[in-house]
């Protein structure tokens, strides 16, 4: 069982995402609606297998898959792929499916490399509050990843349009309107999730003050993450910069937020209390 959960399943997921990557790259070069429908269906099956794995893992360890840095990375990969499939239902996109697959693969690899099997997980992670906090933050970051992908897509499409490169990318990317709309949606949802996560954790920390050590060991990183997300959401909402500059800002802040998440995870598993 241990071998299945911590070794075979993650390797299987890597192989499956490798297959999906090849399939979408092929579709990018050779458009085929029939094959595209099959690829989308295959994507949903993959999500189902991924969910089943995480569910069995959660049942086996009696906690959501957040007990190691590797598990959080894998959980984030799952959320990124779920986001991608939900977007795919609304907008057909060949090239922008490849980017989430790459992100998921990198996260899966990171998860496997940093270790999925927990021997001694930090005691504060067994609290239901910590589970809620980590799930919300991870879902928020997954959303913000999505906004980064659409920001990158908008920059790429602008480049293609300005340089008048009427090749595969020109027809494989969604329209600029779609990319701006999806980016904004992802930013708002990401901000909301991170805000709820931050607020609920702060509240819990306040209630728990007199008790045992707080699970909230990365306050500075969490606050910086929330601040970056708030700045992004505000700028999006007020349209301070215009669509193209907003896309660039989203890509930059998404990268920063990923670093902050990585910092938080490091604090939880390898650092001291803040």
């Amino acid at each position: 069982m241990t071998l299945l959960l911590y070794t075979l399943f993650p390797c299987l997921m890597l192989v499956v995402f490798g297959g999906l990557f090849s399939l979408w790259m092929m579709l990018y070069h050779r458009p085929d609606e029939h094959l595209e429908k099959l690829a989308v269906r295959f994507g949903w099956i993959t999500l189902g297998v991924f969910a089943a794995w995480l569910l069995i893992l959660s049942i086996a360890q009696r906690q959501l898959p957040i007990l190691t840095a590797g598990q959080i990375s894998v959980f984030l990969a799952f959320l990124v792929w779920m986001d991608q499939l939900l977007v795919e239902r609304r907008i057909s996109q060949r090239f922008l499916t490849v980017l989430p697959i790459i992100i998921v693969t990198v996260l899966l690899l990171t998860g496997i490399a940093t270790g999925l099997r927990h021997t001694t997980a930090p005691v504060e992670l067994h609290s239901p509050w910590s589970a809620v906090h980590i799930v919300l933050s991870t879902a928020g970051v997954a959303m913000l990843f999505g906004s980064g992908v659409y920001g990158a897509g908008a920059i790429l499409l602008r480049r293609v349009l300005i340089r008048k490169q009427f090749g595969r990318l020109f027809s494989a990317l969604p329209s600029m309107d779609d990319m701006h709309r999806l980016r904004a949606l992802a930013v708002y949802h990401g901000w909301l999730l991170i805000t709820i996560s931050f607020a609920s954790s702060t509240l819990f920390m306040f209630i728990q003050r007199a008790g045992t050590p707080s699970f909230f060991s990365h306050l500075h990183e969490m606050f910086a993450l929330w601040l970056a997300a708030t700045l992004l959401a505000l700028s999006e909402n007020r349209n301070w910069l215009g669509d193209q500059r907003q896309a660039k800002l989203t890509v930059a802040l998404t990268a920063l937020m990923f670093l902050l998440l990585a910092g938080s995870v490091t604090q939880i598993f390898f650092g001291g209390q803040s």
Binding site: D32, L35, L161, R181
Partner: peptide, 26 residues
């Protein structure tokens, strides 16, 4: 459905529309 043989504008007028649709969804 299995090839892109019918994709992309092949007249100047439709090329202008295709460009507009790359920017604007509706």
């Amino acid at each position: 459905t299995r090839t892109a043989i019918s994709q992309g504008a092949v007249s100047v007028a439709y090329a202008a529309i295709e460009l507009a649709q790359r920017l604007f969804r509706k």
